[in-house]
Simulated scan of single mutants.
Amino acid sequence: MSLAITLAAMFTGYYKFRERSYFLQQTADAIEEEANAVRLGIYPYREFDDDREAEALKLFTQCVEDHRNEQRRRQQQLDQPSDQTAPASQPSAA
């Protein structure tokens, strides 16, 4: 009986670890995409020229903070016990 409980706990811990790494990678990719967009001056930073660089960086910072806040929200959902967690989209097997 103890072995079954241990294996179940290990499986649950592994699954959440995989979800955490998936969501962290997703956030990192989104931030990298924003950084590339601001560096290359493409959407939504297309309208900012060299004279308005401070405005572009302000928008970039806001977008990055939005991504970070979303990551924190996901992390909090994962930290809740399974019976209280709302059904969320699960990462696809890649």
Rank of each mutant, 00 (worst) to 15 (best):
R20V: 00
R20D: 01
R20L: 02
Y22E: 03
F23W: 11
F23V: 06
F23T: 02
L24G: 06
L24K: 14
Q25T: 03
Q25S: 13
Q25A: 13
Q25K: 09
Q26K: 11
Q26P: 00
Q26T: 09
Q26F: 02
T27Y: 02
T27Q: 03
T27K: 04
T27I: 01
T27N: 03
T27C: 06
A28T: 14
A28G: 08
A28W: 07
D29A: 15
A30D: 10
I31D: 02
I31R: 01
E32Q: 12
E33T: 14
E33N: 15
E33W: 08
A35V: 04
N36A: 15
A37G: 06
A37T: 07
A37H: 05
V38D: 03
L40K: 11
L40N: 09
L40Y: 09
L40A: 10
I42E: 10
I42C: 08
Y43E: 10
Y43N: 03
Y43A: 14
P44K: 04
P44D: 04
P44N: 05
Y45Q: 02
Y45C: 00
R46Y: 00
E47T: 15
F48K: 02
F48H: 01
D50I: 15
R52V: 04
R52F: 05
E53A: 10
E55P: 03
E55G: 05
E55R: 05
A56M: 07
A56Y: 03
L57E: 13
L57C: 11
L59P: 03
L59H: 07
F60H: 14
T61A: 15
T61Q: 14
T61G: 14
C63Y: 02
C63K: 15
C63I: 13
C63T: 13
E65A: 10
E65C: 05
D66A: 15
H67V: 00
H67P: 04
N69H: 09
N69F: 08
N69G: 09
E70P: 01
Q71M: 07
Q71A: 11
R72V: 11
R72L: 14
R73V: 06
R73P: 00
R74T: 08
R74P: 03
Q75A: 11
Q76I: 08
Q76N: 09
Q76H: 05
Q77C: 03
L78V: 05
L78T: 07
D79N: 09
